[in-house]
Design a protein around this nucleic acid. Structure first.
Length: 140
DNA sequence: GCCAACGTTGGC
DNA sequence: GCCAACGTTGGC
């Protein structure tokens, strides 16, 4: 099996907060209408971990989710879009804010900063490790 | 609520 | 195939 990759997905808390993912246990990550984000979705494999970021409100990384189903056609569209299924893994003991990410030199290259408006971005293993440490969280 | 960034669309 | 107009996203 290919080496695990890491991602960051954004959601407006108003639309789909982390707490709802926890309640639901699993959800379809659909509605992505951007080619680059779609390509990222398609690159996801079952077991990959996703940082869950709340945009607009909160502006912080609040949890870690796991890809439960690899990319398949987005049922909410007739066109060629994709979605994946994700399930919650663990909430960050201490949410990591956008400001905190910006303030950390080793995270300056994170796509969530450089590709500000992309809703699905790639995260390196080193970045993942740093975020988890900042969030005072260890993976189960 | 405003505005900047940027991807997408459509006219030429 | 270029580029201006437009729409969307997201931070402030």
């Amino acid at each position: 099996m290919a080496r695990k990759r890491y991602w960051l997905v954004k959601s407006e808390p108003f639309k789909y907060p982390w707490s709802k993912l926890v309640t639901d246990g699993r959800t379809h990550w659909d509605g992505v209408r951007n080619y680059e984000a779609r390509n990222n979705l398609r690159a996801m494999a079952v077991g990959d971990l996703c940082l869950f970021y709340h945009s607009n409100e909160g502006k912080e990384i609040v949890g870690v989710a796991r890809v439960a189903r690899a990319a398949y056609p987005d049922p909410t569209s007739d066109e060629d879009w994709s979605c994946v299924d994700v399930e919650p893994v663990v909430a960050l003991a201490k949410p990591v804010s956008l400001d905190a990410v910006r303030g950390r030199k080793s995270l300056a290259a994170m796509q969530m900063l450089t590709r500000n408006r992309l809703s699905v971005t790639a995260v390196t293993a080193a970045e993942m490790k740093t975020i988890l440490a900042m969030g005072e969280t260890t993976l189960p």
